[in-house]
Computed example of a mutant assay.
Amino acid sequence: MPERVNYEYLPTIAGPYVHAVKHKDTLYVSGLTAFGTSAQSDPLIAQSEVILAQLAQILKTEKRCKEDLVKLTIFVKDISQLSLIREQLFGFYESFLPACSLVEVSNLIHPDLLIEIEAVVALS
């Protein structure tokens, strides 16, 4: 049976979802954003930094490492800014490159937000 998980260190959820769901040997992490953080209205690179820190904290909580990242889906409002976060992503992955999709979107949950990242993590 799937286990629904909320992490107390992430911003409070205001919608009909949970931070993550564990099912069998996989963790499905909902889209992470800078919403409710000090970086909410900051540029893309700062928002991305906060999101990657959130993801790193989830990995630590679940006793996993970056090698366990299976797939990321990155949603950005302006795909032309990808070059701003490319090196940041390479650094975050530490050579353990996951499968990844990048999607340009017209909007996110709040007009300040420029990026959202969801993840799939192997738990075994």
Rank of each mutant, 00 (worst) to 15 (best):
Q57P: 02
I85C: 14
T61L: 06
D112A: 15
V29H: 01
F35R: 15
L114Y: 00
V29K: 04
A56K: 07
P16H: 12
V105E: 06
D68C: 08
K66G: 01
C100N: 04
V18I: 05
Q57Y: 05
S101H: 12
H110R: 15
L52F: 14
E8P: 15
E67I: 01
L114Q: 15
V21K: 05
I85L: 10
Y28W: 12
H19S: 08
Y7M: 03
A46Y: 07
Y28F: 13
K63V: 10
Q54H: 10
A56Q: 03
I109Y: 08
T33D: 10
T73P: 09
L44N: 10
P2L: 02
I58N: 02
L55V: 02
V120S: 11
I13V: 14
V105P: 11
L10R: 06
I13N: 15
L10F: 01
L72Q: 09
A14E: 13
L59M: 05
Y17W: 11
L114G: 12
E116M: 07
S101L: 09
F35D: 12
K24M: 13
S124K: 15
R64V: 02
Q40F: 04
A34C: 03
V121N: 03
D112S: 15
E8Q: 12
L114V: 07
E67P: 00
S124Y: 05
V29M: 03
V5T: 01
R4T: 11
L82E: 08
L55Y: 01
L10W: 04
I79M: 13
A34N: 08
E49K: 15
A34T: 00
R64I: 03
P111Y: 00
E87T: 13
L89D: 06
S95Q: 14
T33Q: 09
V103H: 11
E87K: 15
H19P: 12
G91C: 09
